[in-house]
């Protein structure tokens, strides 16, 4: 065999062996990776709905069963609606994406039955600066959205104020993250988009008239 042909043949054989190895590994882990993604989304939805608390997280296997027992998923043309219903109330959750400082921020937003208040928010994906904008993942920040009144003003469904003492749930305002003004503005935009663009569609799908 000439050296040139040997070189090609050799590279081909080595590639085939390693590709086979990786294909095997992929087949062995694929289901678990898909499951991980599902559980992560379910966790975000349950956290946004206030059904889980970060300090008291159940085992990995429990999350799927909690989710399937208590949350109903309705698919519609533009996405999915997640509903938690019981005799007293109903919580509606959905995914919303909006540009952040470095990349897209995707969050699960949950609103109450009357579409008047936010039940909670959970950031599903973002690439904000760790330690600055990344603090949107912090409980202090997210707790500001629990029971926050949604404003009637379509250009500012929530307002972002500078100081914590100026923030008020009844006045639809939250305190900005110090040193991350742009991220805080992005969150306002994200909520505007959720309430102005997505919520009316969801209300229509659900047959409710009170979607704004």
């Amino acid at each position: 065999m000439s050296p040139r042909v040997y070189g090609i043949f050799y590279t081909f054989v080595v590639s085939a062996i390693f590709v086979a190895l990786l294909a095997f590994l992929n087949a062995a882990t694929r289901n678990r990776i898909i499951e991980n993604e599902e559980i992560r989304l379910q966790t975000s939805i349950l956290l946004a709905m206030g059904m889980l608390h970060p300090d008291d997280m159940p085992q990995r296997d429990m999350i799927s069963s909690i989710f399937s027992e208590s949350v109903r998923t309705i698919e519609y043309s533009d996405g999915s609606i997640y509903l938690k219903e019981n005799d007293q109330d109903r919580v509606i959750a959905f995914l919303v994406s909006s540009p952040g400082l470095w990349g897209t921020i995707t969050a699960v937003v949950a609103v109450n039955e009357s579409y008047e208040r936010l039940v909670g928010i959970e950031f599903y994906e973002h690439s904000e600066t760790p330690g600055l904008g990344g603090r949107i993942d912090g409980l202090d920040f997210k707790n500001q959205f629990r029971g926050l009144l949604i404003s009637e003003d379509p250009s500012a469904r929530i307002s972002v104020v500078r100081f914590e003492e100026d923030a008020s749930k009844e006045r639809s305002s939250i305190a900005a993250i110090t040193g991350a003004t742009r991220t805080s503005e992005s969150i306002q935009e994200l909520i505007n988009r959720a309430i102005n663009n997505i919520l009316p569609e969801i209300a229509e799908v659900l047959g409710d008239n009170n979607g704004r």
Partner: peptide, 15 residues
């Protein structure tokens, strides 16, 4: 190939 193995392992077990 080894890097992809590490990456796949992390995705599956340390997401």
């Amino acid at each position: 190939s080894y890097v992809v193995m590490v990456d796949t392992f992390l995705k599956a077990y340390l997401p």
